[in-house]
Amino acid sequence: MIKVSTVIKKNNDLSIPEFHDYWLNEHADIAMGTPSWFKYMRKYVQSHTLHALHPDQKPAYDGVAHFWVDSVDSFQEWSRLPELNVVAADTKKLVEQDKLIRLFTNEVEKYSTPNWEQKSKIKRISFIKKSKNISVKEFHDHWSNYHSQLVINRPWWKHCNRYVQNHIQYDAYPPGESPLGYNGFAEIWFDSLEEFNQWQAGHLDDEAVIADEKNLVDKVDTFFTYEVRKQL
């Protein structure tokens, strides 16, 4: 399966509460009510930005809609159906269309606790641009096979519940490069802000991990969300 993540900036005509309420309770029902939805969509999750956890700086995005589909081709086939016109019209009410980003990725779970779904209240999303000093292949190989093992074996890693890497599928894009040049994104789940703070303190104090990230990553856009699982 392919994971399709649509990265959202809200329509400026909506307040933050209005945006989250409409997306969760109205827009989702419109999309899931189309006749072809369950033919193409295998899973649907909304990640709503926790704006209260960004008091000093406006978060990069207001949310991410995640869809799991059989393939890139099946998603594109679904998106061309005439019945999707009603969804597209409603989307214009909800988001800034010219700032919408769609990422096609291969999702790889690297770590999880047995009860992560029940415990997790916060999910940190980090969109990643690789270092200019390494190739695309080197980035994905190192991130997947070395960096993930480095971090999950640190003592401070016990403060998170789940860790997923999302690797960009470049063949989904005609130019071969994803929007804004992202190479992937990481998702990490936590019980609470307190658990995140303990995780972050250990992370920032870990010289080996920080050094590896400096060699691997050029830029990271990070924000906090809560997850709503609309279709499992």
Rank of each mutant, 00 (worst) to 15 (best):
D98K: 08
K43H: 07
S131C: 10
E177D: 14
S5V: 09
E96S: 12
W23D: 01
D191W: 03
I30R: 03
K58M: 09
G176Q: 11
N161E: 06
V95I: 07
K39G: 08
K158C: 12
A201P: 03
M41Q: 08
L193R: 10
P59G: 06
G184K: 02
T34M: 14
A172W: 02
F38D: 13
D62V: 01
W157H: 11
D205S: 15
Q57G: 11
M1Q: 14
L94G: 00
N85L: 12
Q165P: 12
D171M: 08
W78F: 15
S36M: 13
Y40M: 07
H66D: 14
S71M: 07
G63Q: 04
S47A: 12
Y40T: 10
E107Y: 13
V45K: 01
S74M: 09
Y163S: 11
T222Q: 14
H66S: 14
Q46W: 04
P55Y: 04
L193N: 09
A52I: 10
D13Y: 08
V69D: 02
Q97S: 07
W37S: 15
Y226R: 12
K3D: 10
L103P: 05
G33R: 06
S74Y: 07
F38R: 14
E213D: 15
H167C: 08
K39W: 04
A28L: 05
K58I: 09
W78P: 04
K129Q: 13
H147K: 11
W116S: 05
K129N: 15
V86L: 11
A208N: 15
F67P: 01
N166F: 06
N197P: 06
I168W: 00
G63F: 03
R102F: 04
T49K: 00
V217Q: 12
H203T: 14
N215Y: 13
V136H: 14
P59Y: 01
W156E: 02
H203E: 13
P59K: 01
V45G: 05
A28C: 10
N183H: 14
K10Y: 04
V7H: 00
V228K: 06
D206Q: 05
W156A: 02
N145G: 12
W143N: 10
V64M: 06
T222G: 12
H167P: 06
I2H: 06
G202N: 06
V217E: 12
D21M: 13
D13A: 12
L50F: 06
V69S: 05
D206T: 05
N133I: 05
E18K: 11
F223A: 00
W189G: 04
E194H: 07
V4F: 05
N215W: 11
S178P: 02
S178N: 03
L94T: 00
A28F: 09
D205Q: 13
K132L: 11
V86G: 08
W37L: 11
A172V: 10
I134Q: 02
D206F: 03
L94S: 01
F38P: 02
L24F: 07
N133D: 15
R102G: 05
Q76S: 09
K43N: 08
M32H: 03
H20P: 00
H20W: 02
H48V: 09
W37Y: 15
V87C: 10
K92N: 09
L232A: 10
V86S: 13
F190W: 00
A89R: 07
V151D: 02
E77K: 13
I2N: 05
N25H: 15
W23R: 03
D62G: 01
